[in-house]
Amino acid sequence: MSSENTEGPEHGLVRHGIVVGVDGSDQSTCALLWAAREAGRRSAPLYVVTAYTVPVFAASSMDAGYATVDDEVIRESARAVLDEALSRLEGMALEVYPRIETGDAAGVLLDLSEEAELMVVGSRGRGGFVGRLLGSVSSALPAHAKCPTAVIPVRTGARLGHPELGRKPGRDRDRNAPAAVEPVVVVGVDGSEQARTASLAAAEEARSRGLPLRVICSVAPFNGSLAWVPAPVDRKALHADLAVQLAAGRDWLQSHYPDVVITVDLVDGPPAEVLIEASATSELLVVGTRGRGGFAGMLLGSTSQGVLHHARGPVLVVPDRADPRLEDRSSFGPMVPQAG
């Protein structure tokens, strides 16, 4: 592991590596450990980044010396956070580049996503000067990053061999124990092109890990909130149509990933709840940044936001992007009509 505090190659630019944001919280430590394992699996460099801002009251103080001292103190705190993170990586055969950045944590990581292969953050963090890795970061970053973003909840620590992370004092050990993890990658789809992009990314994740892929489409229950529906919905007919579309989508995905075992599941239930439940036992859950809305749900709108806040395992959010493989989907069978 490179232990010097360097800005990395190419004059400080990230080049196709994995970037993980740390702030000293248990959540960011879980993100760090997961990112390190992923960097080792991919043989990719790991950029460990912390960010800080100078408080407005200090920066605007009439006493210029006060602002300077305050900046130095806060930067030293950020350096301590970074050093503690690096100590977690000692002994690992990784190419590591530590970085301290000045600025809003979400903005810093968004900028780095322009060149990164993967961004990794915790599902929430400590707040304060060093930065927050949820509210601002793990809400804003997945929706706007230029590369996929993995959001790692603190309970993932047990999977990584650190069950003490995130455990509340006095909580029963058995009640805090995570569910057994199935060797499977799960992707949530809703018929949108964004979901098809996510399914391609999920299939690649499954292929690279040597795991099967489970494709889930959930149908939310119709209740009083859907009183605008102009006529009674025939759920049996809806399920039959969706089953045909899912089968066609599976055949399309299988044509691009013939070596991956792919299954599809059509599930009744609110999309966010279905995917959160799946995250408890899957190796990785993959979602898109947004979806079509309506009956089958949205993937980042309400569904992906709900999943990110409450997931029980790692979630990979895939941004919308052009992919030539999307062009031949229609030749495999019916698709959900796209909004105009």
Rank of each mutant, 00 (worst) to 15 (best):
E7G: 13
G8H: 10
G12H: 04
G17E: 14
D23G: 01
L32Y: 08
W34Y: 05
G40F: 14
R41F: 04
L46Q: 07
V48G: 09
Y52S: 08
M62R: 15
I74Q: 02
R79M: 00
R79P: 02
D83I: 04
A93P: 06
E95S: 14
A106R: 10
L118Q: 00
V120N: 05
G122E: 09
R124A: 11
G125Y: 04
G128K: 07
F129P: 11
T149V: 15
V151L: 13
P153G: 06
R159F: 06
E164H: 08
P169Q: 14
G170C: 10
D174Q: 11
R175K: 08
R196G: 13
L200A: 05
A206N: 04
L211V: 10
P212A: 02
A220V: 02
A227R: 12
V229S: 14
A231R: 08
H239A: 10
L242I: 03
A243F: 02
L246R: 05
L253H: 05
I262T: 11
V264N: 08
V264W: 07
V274G: 02
S279Q: 02
V287S: 03
G288C: 03
G288S: 06
F295I: 11
G313D: 08
V317E: 01
V317G: 03
P324E: 11
R325D: 01
M335L: 14
Q338R: 09
